[in-house]
């Protein structure tokens, strides 16, 4: 059976991975898209978190922010994941060797779980659904958790750029 490392090496050495890594335009385009699509995905999550914490847009109901920004946040994440996946294909084995990558993936998973827990448990509580003036503390905690997790994800991602690229 192939180990994960061998699979990653095979992906990196595949025609597909190699084409991205060697192309003058593909790698920069995918990497740039990955970085800039953060503004639609994680960026809008950050502003939502600030609303949950209660320091941003206090006059706008939490439910309005959550529901109306959701389609844009989700499309942002679609672009973020696809572009990130394409960058990954070109340097899978090299980048997986860095502990920063593992940490980033663990944090992304935590960010996802936090969002799911918020969406399906905390946001379903009557105080949130009915937009009470005082919201349960868990709303604020979820906002802080999300803000912290995604900040760390971006830090890991930016620092991963210092891992030498395959072939360069």
């Amino acid at each position: 059976m192939l180990s994960i490392h061998e699979l990653a090496q095979a992906l990196q050495d595949s025609k597909f991975g190699d084409t991205i890594a060697e192309s003058r335009y593909l790698y920069p385009i995918f990497e740039g898209t990955h970085l800039l699509s953060l503004s639609l995905s994680v960026g809008l999550i950050f502003l939502t978190d600030l609303r949950l914490i209660g320091v941003f847009w206090r006059h706008v109901p939490v439910t309005a922010v959550l529901h109306q920004l959701r389609p844009f946040i989700l499309s942002g994440f679609a672009v973020l994941f696809i572009s990130g996946g394409l960058v990954f294909c070109s340097e899978a084995a090299t980048i997986m060797a860095s502990p920063l990558w593992t940490l980033k993936m663990v944090l992304v998973a935590l960010g996802g779980l936090n969002a799911l827990y918020f969406e399906f448990v905390i946001a379903k509580r009557p105080e949130v659904v009915e937009n009470h003036p005082v919201l349960p503390r868990s709303v604020k905690y979820a906002g802080f958790a999300s803000l912290t997790i995604w900040t760390l994800v971006i830090m890991c991602g930016r620092l991963l750029a210092y891992v030498p690229r395959a072939g360069s």
């Binding site: 970085l35 800039l36 953060l38 503004s39 639609l40 994680v42 960026g43 809008l44 950050f46 502003l47 706008v60 309005a64 922010v65 109306q68 920004l69 844009f72 900040t151 971006i154 830090m155 930016r158 620092l159």
Partner: peptide
């Protein structure tokens, strides 16, 4: 890192205002 977070804050704020200006949200 500060550079990236500054850009992110700028672009996100711009997107949020743009969504309202275009009548797409809130």
């Amino acid at each position: 890192l500060v550079h990236v977070f500054g850009i992110l804050l700028l672009l996100t704020s711009l997107i949020l205002m743009s969504l309202r200006l275009l009548g797409l949200a809130l």
